[in-house]
Design a protein around this nucleic acid. Structure first.
Ligand SMILES: [Mn+2]
Ligand SMILES: [Mn+2]
Ligand SMILES: [Zn+2]
Ligand SMILES: [Zn+2]
Lengths: 137, 137
DNA sequence: ATGCAAATGCGAACCATTCTCATTAAGACT
DNA sequence: AGTCTTAATGAGAATGGTTCGCATTTGCAT
């Protein structure tokens, strides 16, 4: 009676162990609708199991990034922020006043990026598009 | 017989002093065609005046950023990189194999960004578009 | 149930950047 | 040219996010 989530299966397939910390962190990411940083994940995890360490959070985030379970963002200034990777690709607009993160998608921009890279003789492996803006009142 | 560069004039106008370190760092940026980080600027500066300190490089970069003389980039992972700000706006494609930085411009992407932000009720204050790619053989 | 490698917890180390503070030097005014 | 005021500097300590080292624990294949 092992209820493996999709990500737990991915861990297993990658030859990695499904440990208590990993299970918990994965669960937190599943529940989180925001883009928490390592410290925030650590705090949320502590509520479920007080002996998880910050180092493990960092290590786990790296592992999960490698297995494709999470995506890492490095917004202007602050620490790295994470989010589950099972959603449709999207980019971010950060409200410079409140820090709020708004998600958006633009097939046309994605397409243009590919075209530009191609013209320069490159294939895109990854990209980063962040808009920093202020609410129009 | 004071030959003030455009940026030295900007410093003066901002009520800031035109010091030896600032003069040198400005000169380095003028000559550099790449995107050096603080340490690299420090090393290049040391060749012209060995007593410039790394702390001053950092402080100067902040000041120059504020006066609009330089632009700061934070590419994936590494330290902040700088470049003179007197050029036309452009974005960057980073070769993930060599680290080479290729510049490009896309009026259409710039325009799309504005449109998207507007639809979300925001006005763009800044943005960041970085493509990470691999050379097509 | 046992054994072994992988993962963890803890603190130390790391690295880029910022800060503190005593000293130096712009540059305004004589 | 000399003096004065205060911004800027140099040196090193401090910081903050992240990674490492190592003894201990734990997952899991047998
Ligand atoms: Mn997101
Ligand atoms: Mn550039
Ligand atoms: Zn995108
Ligand atoms: Zn742009």
């Amino acid at each position: 009676m092992t209820e493996l989530s999709r990500y737990e299966r991915d861990l297993k397939n990658a030859g990695l162990r499904i440990t208590q910390p990993r299970r918990i962190i994965l669960q937190i990411l599943e529940q989180s609708g925001d883009h928490p940083d390592a410290t925030e994940i650590f705090q949320r995890a502590a509520k479920m199991d007080a002996r998880i360490s910050l180092a493990t959070v960092y290590r786990t985030m790296k592992v999960l990034e490698e297995t494709g379970a999470v995506e890492r963002h490095a917004f202007q200034g602050g620490p790295a922020r994470f989010e589950q990777a099972d959603r449709e690709h999207h980019d971010h607009l950060i409200d410079i006043e409140t820090g709020a993160v708004v998600e958006f998608t633009s097939p046309r921009i994605e397409e243009l990026q590919r075209t530009i890279a191609e013209e320069l003789g490159y294939e895109i492996v990854d990209h980063r598009l962040e808009l920093y803006g202020r609410k129009i009142r």
